[in-house]
Every structure is written in structure tokens, then in C-alpha cells.
């Protein structure tokens, strides 16, 4: 074996160890809850916890709402920029990348100061208002990924031609977006959606400061009070993240077909 190849294997092995050992350790730890031996009792305990069910379903609902709201905001804008105002692209892309640079804690701090009970828009004054604010905060977090996903989807299809064809057939802008563009970029949109879900499902900072009992906040509570359940939760989280990212991989396989068929 050549030394270069040996090095490659060594580096790979080192990386693999660093990434796999914590997963194994976490799984092993989650099984240690009983002194007498390995059991899945930590998982039973987590799944039967009412707060787990409540916080997880709340996170899921907020996540789905954030995806829908994000699509309503991003799809028309991305479509508009690509088709009718390419000169605005640098500005729009700059805005969409801001959440990668502005930390979540800064955003939520800004929200708390801007939407408090004595402000013109006192979203934080009501439960529903706070839920909406949390949803929109998640839209902001997911904006870079969502925009890129939709924009990539638009790039793979010929938006201009499709729009002109639809125009000739007498469709208006709303119909064009709903019936022509959207079905074409559904795969890209779903990838963005699953990524959003992966980000949102374990989010802690924003929800905690807005006092929302999301899955991330629940996990933090468990972490502060229990020994073995957190490891079980980490395993569950990893499986969820893997599932969401796995869906994206799966979708990616369908993407080119969609583009070609149309």
C-alpha cells in the first residue's frame, strides 16, 4: 500500500472513530438505566412522558406552520427575482444569508424588545401572538436553506418558457405559480421543508426565551434533572435528524426526473 493511501485510511479511520464513538456511547448510556443490565426502559420512560408527547407535537406543528409560512414568503419572491427582476438577486440573496451570520439569540433578543406588550405590535402579549412569533422566527432560521432549495428548483426548470407558455394559454400570475411552477419544484421545496424540520425540531434558544415548551426546551429540562433519559432523547433526536436528511437524499433521486419530464 502506498503511503498516501495509508494516510487516507488513517485520516478516515480517525474521523470515523470521532463521529461514531459518541453515537455508540450515547446508545450504550441510554441502555444503562437499570443496574441489572441493559434495558430500553429509558426509552419507555421518555415515550410515556406526557410532556414529551406534548412538546414534540407542539414542535412538529410549529415546524409545519413555519414550512408553510416560509413557502408563502419564499416561493413568490424567488420566482419573481428569477423571472422578472434578476437585478434584485444580489440584495435578496444577501438578505436570505443574514440568518447564517446573525445568531439566533440576537434575533430573539431583537424580537423581545420589538414585540413586547408596550410596542405597537404586541405579539408577545398573547399566547397566539407568541406562537406566531416563534413560527416566524423559525422561518427566519430556515430562510437560507429554504430560499436556496426553491431557487435551485427554479433553476433546473425553464421558468421563462413555462411562464410564457402558460401566459399564451391565458393563465394569470397566481395560476402560473400554483399550477405550473409549484408542481415543478415540489421536490426542491420538500428538501427545503425537511431541512427546516431538522433545524426546528430540536431548536432551543429562541423557544426558551419566548417561553414556549418545545421539544428542545423539554430535552434541556430532562437533561438538567435526569441521568439516562437524555441519552435516549439524543438517540431519538439523531434518528429524527437522520430521517429528515434521509428524506432529502431520497428526494434528490427524484429531482432530475421531474425536471426532465417537464
Amino acid at each position: 500500500m502506498k503511503p498516501a493511501k495509508l494516510w487516507s485510511w488513517l485520516i478516515f479511520a480517525f474521523g470515523a472513530a470521532y463521529f461514531i464513538v459518541p453515537l455508540l456511547a450515547t446508545f450504550e448510556f441510554s441502555l444503562r438505566i437499570r443496574r441489572e443490565g441493559y434495558t430500553f426502559d429509558a426509552y419507555t420512560s421518555v415515550f410515556s412522558d406526557g410532556r414529551f408527547q406534548a412538546s414534540f407535537s407542539y414542535s412538529l406543528i410549529v415546524g409545519v406552520c413555519a414550512i408553510l409560512a416560509g413557502l408563502l414568503i419564499v416561493v413568490p419572491a424567488a420566482y419573481y427575482v428569477r423571472l422578472r427582476a434578476p437585478h434584485l438577486r444580489p440584495i435578496i440573496e444577501f438578505i436570505t444569508l443574514l440568518p447564517l451570520v446573525i445568531p439566533a439569540i440576537i434575533l430573539v433578543f431583537g424580537y423581545i424588545r420589538m414585540y413586547n406588550t408596550s410596542s405597537p405590535l404586541p405579539l408577545l402579549g398573547t399566547n397566539l401572538g407568541t406562537d406566531i412569533l416563534l413560527t416566524l422566527a423559525y422561518v427566519a432560521l430556515a430562510l437560507p436553506y429554504m430560499y436556496r432549495a426553491v431557487d435551485t428548483g427554479l433553476r433546473t426548470i425553464d421558468v421563462q418558457t413555462l411562464t410564457e407558455a402558460a401566459n399564451i394559454l391565458g393563465a394569470n400570475q397566481a395560476t402560473i405559480i400554483a399550477k405550473v411552477i409549484f408542481p415543478n419544484i415540489i421536490v426542491a421545496v420538500l428538501s427545503g421543508a425537511f431541512l427546516t424540520l431538522a433545524i426546528v425540531i430540536g431548536e432551543f434558544t429562541i423557544a426558551s426565551l419566548l417561553n414556549r415548551q418545545v421539544f428542545g426546551v423539554y430535552m434541556q429540562n430532562v437533561g438538567a434533572n435526569r441521568a439516562f433519559e437524555p441519552a435516549a432523547l439524543a438517540v431519538i433526536s439523531f434518528v429524527i435528524t437522520w430521517g429528515a436528511m434521509g428524506m432529502i437524499q431520497l428526494l434528490a433521486r427524484f429531482a432530475p426526473k421531474t425536471a426532465r419530464r417537464d
Partner: peptide, 23 residues
Amino acid sequence: VASQFAGIPLSFAFLATLGRLGL
């Protein structure tokens, strides 16, 4: 997957690995 596996669960994973009782 791992690039998105951050936050609370990641800290649990490292506690279970390199914490005082970690594997």
C-alpha cells in the same frame, strides 16, 4: 446529518461519551 445534529442532543451525546460516567 451530523452538520444538523447540534444543540441539546449533541451535548447529551458528549456527556454520555466524555462525561464523568461517559463510555
